[in-house]
Amino acid sequence: MGNQTLINEFILLGLSNDPRLQIFLFVVFLIIYALTLLGNLVIMLVIRSKAGLHTPMFFFLGHLAFVDICYSSVTLPKMLGNLVTMQKTISREGCIAQIFFFFQTAGAEVFILAAMAYDRYVAICDPLHYIIVMKTEICKQLVGGAWIMGFLNALMNALPLSNLQFCRNNTLSHYSCEIPSLLLLSCSDTLTNYVVLLASIFLFGLTSFILTLISYIYIISTIMKIRSAEGRRKAFSTCSSHLIVVVLFYGTGYFRYLRPNTSSSIVLDQLVSIQYTISAPMLNPIIYSLNTKEVKESIKKLLKKIC
């Protein structure tokens, strides 16, 4: 390494090198980002303004909307800027910072999803003690714990990256900095980074997933014991939207970070990354609005007032 030039910035190739296609992609992702901000802000505004939605379920949903705004803002603004500029670079420090905030917000999101699953478990499986168990203080502690776990997750993955040196290539075949793509460019020993990444995935990702899974095992078993079909439908409708969000987020995230890095998987990795970094924050408010009657009615009333 003594005779090699160390790299202090990276080139993000993005999704395409075609200038005309880049303009089209800029418009598409600008609309997606605007919808993400608007949709999640509407969810937060509706929950805050309507007294009937001041319940634990909507308290978690409001914080999930805030996390989705932060989560999408980690990568999309930089991606949009690169689509309209000739210089598609990001500094080494900026790349590590982007990874830090990505893991911070993603970690907070998965644990808020786990808290929402626990809330539905108590509401369906132990409704008589729901008010006692899901007190305001407990809900605030769960949300605070989610952000703390996200911070620990980010710190665990970002700190080892600061010790790496890059001297082979500075081209990332991606629209953002992600650890699997970044480690391929390092001329340092990356075994520790891979071990830390896998450990964090199992420690934070698997823990939150198991908590969510256990909650839904009890929820589904309780719903199946309900005799009337109408009762089962109403019970399942209260958690179906959350289950859809969980499956989409965990499925694509695990697929991206647990599969081997191969040159033939660049396009597939980009498509999968678009789902959990760009599409998920936009789809979450849409899914909850369509499947949650109270939110849907409140949004309709708000739109009528604005019109």
Rank of each mutant, 00 (worst) to 15 (best):
V28H: 09
L76F: 12
L37G: 10
F26M: 10
D68H: 02
N40F: 02
G52Y: 08
M116L: 15
L30R: 03
L80K: 04
L76G: 01
I47L: 07
H63P: 00
A65D: 01
F102E: 01
K78L: 15
F100S: 06
C70A: 14
I90A: 09
A65K: 06
L41N: 12
M86F: 12
F66H: 00
V27K: 13
L25V: 14
L80Q: 06
F111N: 05
A65G: 13
T105G: 03
K78G: 10
S72C: 12
T85S: 13
L38Q: 09
K78W: 13
I69R: 08
P56Q: 13
L76K: 07
V42M: 05
D68C: 13
E109W: 00
P56G: 15
N82T: 12
F102I: 02
A114E: 05
A115M: 02
F26E: 02
G52R: 12
K50W: 02
G52E: 14
T55C: 04
F103D: 08
T105F: 13
M116S: 07
F29A: 03
V28P: 05
G62L: 08
V110W: 01
E93R: 11
A97G: 11
L61Y: 00
H63W: 12
L35A: 14
T89D: 06
F59W: 07
H54D: 07
L41K: 10
I90N: 04
M116I: 03
F103K: 07
L80T: 10
L53S: 14
Q104P: 02
L38F: 15
V27I: 15
A106F: 05
V27C: 15
N40S: 10
I43M: 10
K88A: 12
F111W: 09
L30A: 14
T89A: 08
L76N: 12
M44V: 14
I32T: 08
Q87C: 08
Q104Y: 10
V28E: 14
K78N: 10
R92S: 09
L83M: 06
G39N: 06
Q98T: 08
I112W: 00
I32L: 12
L25Y: 14
K88S: 10
S73C: 08
K88L: 11
L53W: 08
L61E: 02
D68K: 01
V27L: 15
G107N: 07
S73M: 07
F24M: 14
G94E: 01
F29V: 04
F60C: 01
I32H: 12
G39Q: 04
S91C: 04
M44K: 12
F66T: 00
L80A: 04
Q98N: 03
K88D: 02
F24C: 15
A34F: 15
L61N: 00
F24H: 13
M57W: 03
R92P: 06
A51T: 14
Y71S: 11
A115E: 03
T55Q: 05
Q104R: 00
P77R: 11
V84N: 02
E109R: 05
C95Q: 07
L76P: 01
L37N: 10
V28D: 13
V110G: 04
I43S: 04
I69F: 04
L30F: 14
